[in-house]
Each structure stands twice: as C-alpha cells, then as structure tokens.
Amino acid sequence: MSASPAVMAGNDTPWVLPSRGRVGMISLIIAESAIFMIFVAAYIFYIGKSLDGPTPRQVLKIPIFITVCLLSSSLTMHWAIATLRKGKTASFNVFWLITLVLGAIFLAGTGREWQHLIYQEGFTIQTNLFGTTYYSLVGLHASHVTAGLIGLTIVAILGLAGKIKREHSERCEVFALYWHFVDAVWVVVFTVVYIVGR
C-alpha cells in the first residue's frame, strides 16, 4: 500500500492550522493560572484567620507606582510587537527596552517592599498565616516577573545586536502573551492582597 493514503480529491480549501507557539503558550498560561488560582484561594481563605499580628493593614502599603509601571509595560510591549510587525526594528528595540525597564522597576519595588517588611517590620513567612500566604503569593508572582525579565533581556540583547527581524514577530508575540499574563495576574494579586485583604 502506498504510504500516502486518501487523496483529497476535489477539496481545495486552504489548510490552515493555528500556530503551535501560540497554542503552546496559551496552554502553559492555563496551567500557570491554575497554580495561581490555588494560591489565591489559599490567600482568600486565610484572610483574617491569623492567630496573631501583624495584620495586612498594619504593614502593607498600596504599591501604586510599581503597579502603574507593570501595567504600562504591557502597553509598551504591545507597541513593540506592533512596530516589529511593520518591520521597524529600531522603535521595536526602544519599546522593548522600556518594557524591560518598567518590569525591572516593578521587581525592584517588590524587593524594596519585602526588605522593608522583613527588616523594619520583622514580618516574615514564619510570622503568621498572613505572612505565609502573602510571601508565597507575591513571591510566586515575582518569580514569574523574574522569568519574564530574563526572557526580555535575552531578546533585548539580540535586538540590540540587530538579530531581531520582522520574521521574528511571531515568536516575540508568543513571548508577549506570557508578559501580558504576568501583568494580568498582578491585577488579581493586587486586588486580593492590597484591596480585598487589607
């Protein structure tokens, strides 16, 4: 028997399939969302259940600035991709670098917050349930930001070296999906930790 079976006689509709990069990334994002969902559930469940202080109101300040930074980095990421699609690699590099800087500011901000909590307030993961859930949820998010920043840096270096061309816009877009996801998660974390939980 021939190794190529049924011929598609009389069928001339073009055969298009979704991009596997995008499908793969979306799948990964679904899996990650499930992880975050469990941590968020634990956080919400434990709001107000700590046996002793400090309470969120006593130690947490709402991190407006870094939130704005992170959210706007999604926008610059979007522009970066849009310009790359048009082949404007120079402005791509600029937007990409701004994204990177904004992300880095966010991470530094989280770092400052933690440093303050640990050294000034003496508040750690061992202190109480609030500490446990707070550090793990915010930390889980920060670790995703870190991973994102590593990716951003690699692309930025390649971009500055002139290696990123229009034909890479698809891949950059897949990466952008991840970054948007990290931002979206922050919206949830922010709401839960700094608004609902406080």
Partner: peptide, 20 residues
C-alpha cells in the same frame, strides 16, 4: 497545576516555616 501548587505550599511548610 493545583497539585503542584499544593506541593509548593507543603514544601514551604516543611522547609521555611510556613503555616499553610
């Protein structure tokens, strides 16, 4: 993923003094 999350919590409890 939920299992992974739960295992992370258990590890936090066992290693770094978490209270989940």
């Amino acid at each position: 993923s939920p299992l992974t999350a739960a295992q992370l919590m258990l590890m936090a409890d066992r290693y770094i003094g978490g209270h989940f």
